[in-house]
Computed example of a mutant assay.
Amino acid sequence: MLPSHDRFPYSPIVGRPDFAWPGGKRLAVYVALCAEHFAYGSGLGLPYSPGLSHPNSYNWGWREYGNRVGGWRLIELFDEYRLPLSVLLNTECYDHCPDLVAAHRRRGDEIVAHGRTNSEHQNGMDQDAERRLIAEATAAIRVNEGVQPGGWMSPGAHPSANTEDLLAEAGYTYTLDWPIDDQPVWMRTRHGPLLSIPYPHEVNDVPMIVLHDGTASAFADMAIDNLEEMLLQSERQPLVYGLTIHTFIVGQPFRIRQFRRVLDCLNRHQDKIWFTTPGACARHYAGLFPASQAFNDKV
């Protein structure tokens, strides 16, 4: 037998019960905007200029552009289109660029915990160190937003084998760390169930643009094609379409110009779409399919 995570059993999407999102909609759509802060002189994070030694102002400055400019332009863009955002937040942003976080607070955007900084990854930490990381990020959001965050996305999309257990222990209800499905999936942890909400591994500006050298127009085409195909598939069963962008990547002016095509397409199909957040998806799905029912059906 191959080693297993033992978090959830295999389940083919074609064999699941039917349901609907609020308003009878069949496709739930959320846009995740990653707002991140990186340590100066650190080698972790995306390299704009691979191979250069640190400290590297070119690399750090590329990502800092998102906090100073790109993030603000994306807020203006989503205000223009009257669409919600789900902010995957490095909590170091509360100290570094509090005005940017406050602007999302005024919009009513969901704040999803995204660790302290993308200059550190949980995988490789011992449990006590990872528990402290989660506790510090959680406390920062609770203090600044006045609410317990419901969802988590690990920095660098790099959780450890213990992350789900520690998240449930800390009171989280869902994770975005597992790009495994187009519907929510219940996961087992040592501290009770945790919901995995669909998160995009492909329709994500990091792999498409940074890692695969995709153009701004190609990323927009991908996002539009994914939407239109999922609209067809959602006629048969309800789905979740998550789309991930970063302040310093799509926040560049030439990419915003192309990304407008994506938002135009979303608005053209607004009668068929539930524009939402991963937290709202988690609450709705959990209300329809409690974890106890899912585990009883599968175990």
Rank of each mutant, 00 (worst) to 15 (best):
D128M: 06
W62H: 14
E130Q: 05
G108C: 08
L74Q: 06
E136L: 07
A103E: 13
A102C: 09
G115E: 06
L83Y: 00
F78E: 00
N144L: 09
L83T: 05
T91W: 01
H104V: 01
N118G: 15
R63K: 15
W62C: 12
T117P: 02
S57P: 11
H96F: 15
Q148T: 10
V87I: 14
L100V: 05
E130N: 04
V143K: 12
T138M: 03
Y81E: 11
G151V: 01
G124R: 06
R131K: 10
R142H: 01
D95R: 14
A157N: 09
H104S: 13
N90L: 04
N67D: 04
V87S: 01
E92K: 14
M125D: 06
L77V: 11
Y94W: 10
M125T: 07
G156M: 11
D79W: 02
A129D: 15
W60Y: 11
Y65T: 05
W72G: 04
P155K: 05
G108Q: 02
L133T: 03
G151T: 00
T138H: 13
N144T: 08
R106P: 00
V147D: 03
R73I: 03
P155I: 00
M153G: 10
N144V: 05
W72I: 10
G66E: 02
G115A: 11
T91G: 04
G71P: 07
P155M: 02
L77Y: 01
G108P: 00
R73T: 14
A135D: 12
W72D: 07
G151F: 00
P155W: 00
L85A: 11
E145S: 09
H114L: 08
R131S: 15
T117G: 04
V147A: 14
N144G: 02
R73Q: 13
M153W: 06
A157Q: 12
R63C: 08
R142E: 15
V87K: 05
A140L: 06
D99T: 15
I75T: 04
T91N: 12
G124P: 04
M125N: 07
E92I: 13
C93R: 08
D126Q: 01
P149H: 03
L85W: 06
I134V: 01
P149D: 08
V101S: 08
V112K: 00
W72H: 12
Q127K: 13
E76T: 10
I134S: 09
N90I: 07
E76P: 03
R63P: 01
V147K: 13
A102V: 08
G146E: 04
W152D: 06
E64V: 02
E76A: 14
A139F: 04
E76F: 07
D99M: 15
S86M: 03
G61V: 02
E120K: 04
N118L: 07
N123K: 15
H104E: 11
L74T: 09
G124C: 02
W60S: 13
H96A: 13
M125H: 04
Y58Q: 12
L85M: 13
S57H: 12
H121R: 06
L83G: 00
W62L: 09
E110V: 08
Q148P: 09
V112N: 09
A113E: 14
D99V: 15
P149Y: 05
H96R: 13
H104N: 11
Q148V: 08
C97V: 09
G108T: 10
G124A: 01
S119H: 10
D99L: 14
N90P: 14
Y58D: 12
R107L: 14
